[in-house]
């Protein structure tokens, strides 16, 4: 019996190699390097290798591949890409659940749950369900990116195929950055010209005053949602122990005209102080591909890097700051190099 199975195995393996394969990879970089990683991934070859020169690191800082998965691409069936369900798994295991399925309109629908360990004792958990993305034929495409403190994590997928596939064209990407800006700079935000807005958003991640940043593949009129939480690994086995939610965001994009979109969203964050709100509506109109800065009144409180001179002078590395600005960009999902 086992001998018969053994002679079938190479055959099965060769079938899988001959067919299409879906790859995914999770890469962690310092937040300021994320725009560079996006350019580097345009050059990255098919499966990101285990060893050797993983990626071209333009700034010389590490590109850490933390999770990697692949499976034969089977249309109309769920494709598990992670390391399996880890409910009740021994403490210390990092769970990474990604299930892809062919969706309507030729796209892929993903359910994602990724745990990352910044330090051995704790973990970050990122979840999103029903994420819609185009089929990335022979190129890496970003599915989602989020920050964990000053580092950014991004999830990518890639379909190895011999068949040419046309991009559907209606896939979008929503980017959100929740940050704190100096109050006197804030007064001028509504009158910034587009170029200044772009420059300011580009510098936000370098100021250490970003609370949360998210980027998600999405489609017009399909609601999206995500959740970022945090937990203690040693206590995960305790009955009744739950992750501490850091932020939840849900929203929907409607595309009024080809060059214009509207975001209707809701941010939920835990309350730190009496009188803090629990939910903050975030709605804005935006030109496709252009950053928009909107002022958020009394946003969630977070620990920000000291930036102003008087703060550094008093030798405080971190100060309590309130999220007071949201940068929003809706763009057409990157179609890769022709």
């Amino acid at each position: 019996m086992s001998a018969r199975l053994a002679c079938f195995l190479p055959l099965l393996a060769s079938l899988a190699v001959a067919g299409e394969r879906l790859h995914c990879v999770v890469i962690e970089v310092p937040s300021a390097s994320l725009p560079l990683l996006r350019e580097e991934m345009k050059r990255a070859a098919a499966p990101v290798a285990d060893h050797g020169p993983v990626l071209l690191s333009t700034d010389g800082l590490p590109r850490r591949v933390t999770h990697r998965g692949q499976a034969p691409f089977v249309p109309e069936k769920p494709i598990p890409l992670g390391n399996g369900p880890r409910e009740g798994s021994p403490a210390g295991a990092r769970s990474f659940n990604i299930v892809a399925a062919s969706g309507a309109g030729g796209g892929l629908v993903y359910d994602v749950s990724i745990q990352q360990s910044p330090v051995p004792a704790s973990y970050y958990d990122f979840r999103t369900k029903g994420l819609v993305a185009a089929v990335p034929a022979n190129r890496w495409q970003e599915l989602a990116a989020w920050n964990q403190g000053t580092r950014s994590v991004s999830l990518w997928h890639h379909l190895q195929t011999d068949e040419p596939r046309a991009a559907a064209g209606d896939e979008l990407r929503i980017e959100l950055i929740f940050a704190s800006m100096p109050d006197d700079a804030l007064a001028h935000v509504p009158e910034y010209p587009p170029e200044l807005t772009r420059q300011v958003v580009g510098h936000l991640s370098g100021t250490g005053r970003v609370w949360k940043s998210f980027s998600l593949a999405c489609r017009a009129d399909v609601p999206f949602h995500l959740q970022s939480s945090h937990g203690d690994r040693r206590r995960r086995q305790e009955p009744g122990y739950g992750d501490r939610v850091l932020a939840k965001f849900q929203g929907r994009i409607t595309r009024d005209t080809p060059g214009h979109a509207t975001l209707d969203g809701l941010l939920e964050a835990p309350r730190h102080h009496e009188g803090d709100a629990e939910a903050y509506p975030v709605s804005s109109e935006a030109s496709i591909g252009e950053w928009r800065l909107i002022v958020l009144r009394d946003g969630p409180t977070f620990k920000a890097a000291a930036a102003a001179f008087h703060e550094i002078y008093t030798r405080r590395a971190h100060v309590a700051a309130k999220v007071n600005v949201v940068a929003i960009r809706v763009s057409v999902a990157d179609e890769g190099e022709p």
Binding site: S33, P35, L36, E39, E40, K42, R43, P53, L56, S57, T58, D59, G60, E337
Partner: peptide, 24 residues
Amino acid sequence: FLPEPVVAAMNTFTPEHTRLARGA
């Protein structure tokens, strides 16, 4: 300074990659 592999590859960069590499 940029890492040596980057210097070797930079003539193939997209304009956006070049712009970001300059910043790095």
